Computed example of a mutant assay.
Amino acid sequence: MDWNKIDEYLQLATDKVVFYLPRILLAIIIFWVGFKLVQKLVELLKKGLEKTGFSETLRPFLASTVGAVLKGAVLFIIATVLGADLTGLFAILAAAAFAIGMALQGSLGNFASGILILTLKPFKVGDWIQVDDKFGRVTEIGIFSTDVLTPGNKILIIPNSMITESVVTNFTEKGMIRLELEVTMPYEESFPKVERILCTALKDVEHILDEPKPEIGILNFDSHNVQLTVRPYVKPDNFWEVTFNAHKAIKNAFHSHNIKVAYSEGVEIGKIGE
């Protein structure tokens, strides 16, 4: 047995233990203290975001993201204390991040748009909005898309990037919306008379707001009729109910007062049935 070799190995092992043991103990302390500190910071962040009225959808995501980043920083410090060379790891992570970013370019755009929507709050859940020609009530605002319920009871899943790149009309922001109703009257009829009939008819329609008052005017002239516009104001939730009831009330009023119209089949004046 070569005792010199054994002594050499024991000395080498002792040197390694003396060299690494303090570092391992320090790494354990950093791990324990660091993760406890991260947990406290995440809890403080959640409370702070809640007090400032930050989006309920975004709060858990931000808290978990910040927690993951801070925990990653703690692990990085531990690896540095232990003497690990992280240069190669960083190169691999950078290449992987670039590849993932290119593959998920559209999703990342929706993600960034979702962060903007949840932070700036151009609308909230329950608001009636219109994005391009898509109209409905917002039911959910997600990180990647926004769900909108149409009056026809269909769910539209709109990518958030489409929302931030388009003109968004928020009908709920002001607490009211103006209906755009169009009716016609014959040229021989008196506009002041028809205007009074329309005003009276609208007063009997439930949910039409008294202020601002409904607007009634001549919109255009065609070959057969005078085109009128009727613009009452309603709350967004009553949009379709008032639209249908207002058309019904106007038709009944025209029938009661014998207001005639030109049918599309010709230029002859005909009566309106009940």
Rank of each mutant, 00 (worst) to 15 (best):
Q11I: 10
T52C: 13
T57K: 05
A246S: 02
I78W: 00
K71A: 15
K40T: 09
L118T: 14
L156N: 09
N258D: 08
L179P: 02
T80C: 10
L12A: 13
I272V: 05
I259V: 11
G53I: 08
Y187N: 03
G136H: 02
A91T: 10
I77E: 13
P60K: 02
V167M: 13
G88Y: 10
E173I: 02
E211C: 12
V242P: 02
A246L: 01
K154E: 02
F239Y: 07
S107N: 08
K121H: 08
E165A: 09
R196V: 06
E274C: 10
V261L: 11
T139K: 13
K121D: 09
F19V: 09
A103T: 04
I272K: 03
I92T: 05
N258T: 14
K203F: 02
P151H: 03
D85T: 10
E50N: 14
K134A: 12
W240P: 00
F61M: 10
I6G: 09
G114W: 00
V230Q: 03
D147S: 15
D222Y: 01
N225R: 08
I197H: 06
L41R: 15
H207A: 11
G34Y: 00
E180R: 09
F135D: 14
F54E: 11
N4E: 12
I269F: 05
K271R: 13
G72M: 04
T146L: 04
I6W: 06
Y233W: 06
L58F: 00
F135S: 13
L228N: 00
